[in-house]
Simulated assay, not measured.
Amino acid sequence: MKVILTHEVSSLGTAGDVVDVKDGYARNFLFRRGLATAWTKGGQKQVDSIAKGREVREVKSLEEAKSIKGNLESKPVTVPAHAGKEGRLFGAVSSADIAAAVKAAIGTELDKRKIEVPTPIKSTGAHEALVRLHPEVQAKVTLNVVAG
């Protein structure tokens, strides 16, 4: 099934790309989360407008993305979470929690969909997350998860 991506999906592509995926993946994941729409003959206009908007945003945000990357990588971000006595969390730290902690620490607002955590964070201590700021710029954020 051909779909038009409306948001960036890490394993497929960026907004405006036309990709071929399996029917179940498109119906059960991409469409339900609003990450893609079905490709039609009239959908080409939508593809063109998304690509044009992406080009306008990327040109001016490359320098900004590099400066944000420097701020994110310069110091660890403290993420408060509910934990037991032995440092095990009640649940896990989500990308929304990380985005809120970054906003509180640095003042930069991040999109939670652009934050990737390689393994679920279920304990206190130091962890790392990857933030896709721009197609060419990715920042590694050091997270200090504390009980709080």
Score class of each variant (00 low, 15 high):
K2Y: 09
V3Q: 01
V3H: 01
L5C: 06
T6R: 12
T6V: 15
H7N: 14
H7V: 11
H7L: 13
H7Q: 15
E8Q: 12
A15H: 00
V19R: 12
V21I: 06
G24F: 03
R27K: 13
N28K: 10
N28H: 12
R32F: 03
R33W: 02
A36Q: 05
T37H: 09
T37L: 14
A38Y: 06
W39F: 11
W39R: 05
T40M: 03
K41I: 08
K41C: 04
K45L: 11
K45F: 02
V47G: 00
V47A: 01
V47Y: 00
D48L: 10
S49P: 02
I50P: 00
I50E: 00
K52G: 05
G53F: 00
G53E: 11
E55H: 04
E55T: 10
V56S: 05
V59W: 07
K60C: 04
K60F: 08
L62C: 03
E64R: 14
K66P: 06
K66W: 04
N71S: 14
L72F: 09
E73D: 06
P76N: 07
P76D: 09
T78G: 04
V79A: 12
P80W: 11
A81C: 02
A81Q: 04
H82F: 12
H82A: 15
A83V: 01
A83F: 01
G84I: 11
K85Y: 08
E86C: 04
R88G: 03
G91K: 02
A92M: 10
S94T: 15
S95E: 14
A96D: 13
A96V: 14
D97L: 11
D97A: 06
D97G: 09
D97I: 06
A99F: 02
A99L: 06
A101R: 11
A101S: 15
A101N: 10
K103H: 14
K103Q: 15
E109Q: 15
D111T: 00
K112D: 04
I115K: 03
V117R: 01
T119E: 14
K122Y: 07
K122V: 13
S123C: 03
S123A: 14
G125T: 11
G125F: 08
G125K: 10
A126R: 15
L130V: 13
V131P: 02
V131W: 06
R132S: 11
H134D: 04
H134R: 00
Q138Y: 06
V141C: 06
L143H: 08
V145Q: 09
A147D: 12
